[in-house]
Every structure is written in structure tokens, then in C-alpha cells.
């Protein structure tokens, strides 16, 4: 790890100003990803601007039943918050499915959105990687890619975004708020992550030097009946090989509202809008769920070693939506 300057920011404008003043500067949140990457040489900042103690650690209710979550809220506090658990249970579940108790106590919302891929070629500086060293090539395409992307990737990069939290945020139409020297801005999560294309090193649409200040979750009654399911190669403390955030509202046997997002299949949390459109207004049956999953996954371009993810995601969609539909049916019966 090379030597670096360290500054603790007192307020948001101060943080933005500090970062702008130094070349090769990075914001430091919980550090669970950045410090690791600095140790492996992937990140070599000259200046760290510590934003962890900025007053961005609140979770507030917004008008109409949404939430605003500050950027320095830790994963633990987010998952433990009663309103998160009540209004967006899949978000709490997603956060709890990630990392470990220790890491969740350190990691922050802002950092989670910006965490880098766990692709083993990206984290090994002795190997080529277009994301780390643009133009050097992508060894994963013809190499070890069991846990790489099946959707939205390119020949330049097939890495997946490792976040669990982000999958639930994508399902619930989160909007990311940020601050720059020129003032505040906002990006819907759907536009936050850039397409891979031939620039996999450009990961987000944030302006240079922008500091994420928080996320708003618009009101979503359907989210109250939501679930996150994560499949991984051990039962805990491992990144997903496929995950699903799902919310479903079934009325009289028909899909009234539905949200679906996939994890560990693309360079970003993958909102399955094609599947959602296929389901809306239709029957809440296993066949319909499978057909909707197939419609979304028709765009999948698996590599030789990760075709199982297509089956996995399809099966997850059917299994989780079937469970949620059954709960909707029971709730409908109970309220009649």
C-alpha cells in the first residue's frame, strides 16, 4: 500500500472541497472494500477524505410512505431499522444476506453502491483487466467465469456487481442523491450504473468528485410483501452466485403489482422490467412466473461456464413468486 494523506471531513461541502483539492483522492466510508483494494494495490489513492462522520446517518420517512436513507447509515443500522423492515422487508433481508455482522457494522450505504466487483482478475494486479487497466483485456471471458455475468455484459468485461443491497434498491426504484462542488444532484438507480460497453472502467454516472449523500425510496405498497433470496456457494459469508429481490401484489388471482430484480448476473443490480411487464395483469401461476422469467432471460448471453445461472434465476423467480403469491392468497382470505 502506498503512502497517502488522510483528512476527516466536517461537513458535506467540506468533504467535496477536500476531495476536489487533491488528485487521486477517494472518499472513505466504512472502508470494507476500499481498504482491501488498497492493500491489494487495485486502489492507490494519494488522499483519503473520511466521510464516515458526516451527518448523513439518518433514516427518515418521506411523505407518502417512502424513506430517505443517509449515505453513512451502516448496513447494520439499515437492516435493523423498523421502517425498513416494515415497508421494504426485502431490503432488510438483502442487507442481512451480505457479508458478516462485523462488515455490516462498518459498511455504509454509499460505499455499498460504489463497491467494486469481486472478479478475481480485477483484484489481482498481476493480471489483465479492462476495468482496472483499460485496454489490457478481459481474462474472465476465456478463463474462470463461473460467477460472472449473463446479462448486459460485453466482450470487454463480464464482471458482476457484488451488492445484495443494491438488488433490493433496484427493485424499489431507489434514487441516489449526491453533492458536487456545483451543487446537489440525483440519479435514479436505473441510470446510476453505466452500461458496460467498451468502457467497463467507467462504472457510474456520478459526476467527478461527487459525494453520495443518500438514497430515497419512493413509496411502494407492494414492497411490504417482498422477499430477497440469495444463493451462494456456502450458507453464509459469501457473495451471491444468483439472487432475487421480489415483491408481489396479487388481487383476485391476477398480478396487481410486481417488482423483480436479479443479483450476481450483471455489472449492476438487474431490474427485470421485461418480466414485470409480462406479469402485470396476468395470472399469478407458476407457469406465468416461468414464462416471465424466460422473457427476461431471453437476453441472457451465458459463457461456457455460467449457463447454470439462467436456470438458477428462472427457478428462483418461480419459487419466490410462488411463495409470495401464496401469501397474498392467504392474506386475501384472512381479510375477507
Amino acid at each position: 500500500m502506498r503512502e497517502f494523506d488522510y483528512r476527516r471531513a466536517a461537513d458535506v461541502p467540506g468533504a467535496v472541497a477536500l476531495l476536489g483539492a487533491g488528485p487521486e483522492a477517494r472518499y472513505l466510508g466504512g472502508g470494507t472494500n476500499l481498504v482491501d483494494l488498497m492493500k491489494s494495490g487495485v486502489e492507490r489513492p494519494a488522499l483519503l477524505v473520511d466521510v464516515r462522520e458526516l451527518p448523513l446517518d439518518r433514516i427518515e420517512e418521506t411523505d407518502g410512505g417512502g424513506l430517505r436513507i443517509g449515505a453513512t447509515v451502516t448496513n447494520s443500522d439499515l437492516a435493523a431499522h423498523p421502517e425498513v423492515r416494515r415497508r421494504y422487508p426485502a431490503l432488510a433481508q438483502a442487507v442481512l444476506a451480505g457479508a458478516s455482522g462485523q462488515l455490516r457494522n462498518m459498511a455504509t450505504l454509499g460505499g455499498n453502491l460504489l463497491q467494486r466487483t469481486r472478479c478475481a482478475y480485477f483484484t489481482d494486479v498481476t493480471k489483465p483487466c479492462n476495468k482496472r487497466a483499460p485496454g489490457s483485456g478481459c481474462p474472465a471471458v476465456a478463463g474462470e467465469h463461473r460467477n460472472h455475468a449473463i446479462l448486459g455484459a460485453s466482450a470487454h468485461c463480464v464482471a458482476v456487481h457484488p451488492s445484495d443491497m443494491g438488488v433490493a434498491l433496484a427493485a424499489f426504484d431507489a434514487v441516489v442523491h449526491y453533492e458536487t462542488a456545483d451543487g446537489p444532484g440525483a440519479l435514479p438507480l436505473a441510470e446510476f450504473y453505466l452500461p458496460v460497453g467498451d468502457t467497463p472502467h467507467r462504472e457510474t454516472a456520478l459526476p467527478p468528485g461527487a459525494l453520495i449523500t443518500g438514497v430515497t425510496l419512493p413509496p411502494a405498497p407492494v414492497a411490504a410483501a417482498s422477499r430477497y433470496r440469495k444463493v451462494r456457494e456456502r450458507a453464509s459469508y459469501a457473495f451471491a452466485i444468483g439472487s432475487l429481490a421480489a415483491a408481489l401484489d396479487v388481487r383476485d388471482g391476477a398480478v396487481h403489482d410486481v417488482r423483480l430484480a436479479f443479483g450476481a448476473v450483471a455489472s449492476r443490480p438487474w431490474r427485470a422490467r421485461t418480466a414485470e411487464r409480462a406479469l402485470l395483469g396476468g395470472p399469478a401461476t407458476a407457469e406465468a412466473f416461468a414464462a416471465a422469467a424466460d422473457a427476461e432471460l431471453a437476453a441472457a448471453e451465458p459463457l461456457p461456464g455460467n449457463g447454470y445461472k439462467v436456470t438458477l434465476i428462472r427457478n428462483l423467480v418461480v419459487a419466490v413468486l410462488t411463495e409470495l403469491a401464496e401469501e397474498c392468497r392467504r392474506n386475501e382470505e384472512a381479510t375477507r
Binding site: G31, V35, D36, Q102, M106
Partner: peptide
């Protein structure tokens, strides 16, 4: 609880 190896 935190992991002290990632805490500067």
C-alpha cells in the same frame, strides 16, 4: 463488532 484489519 468490526474487523480491525479493514479499519484504518
Amino acid at each position: 463488532r468490526v474487523v480491525s484489519c479493514l479499519q484504518l
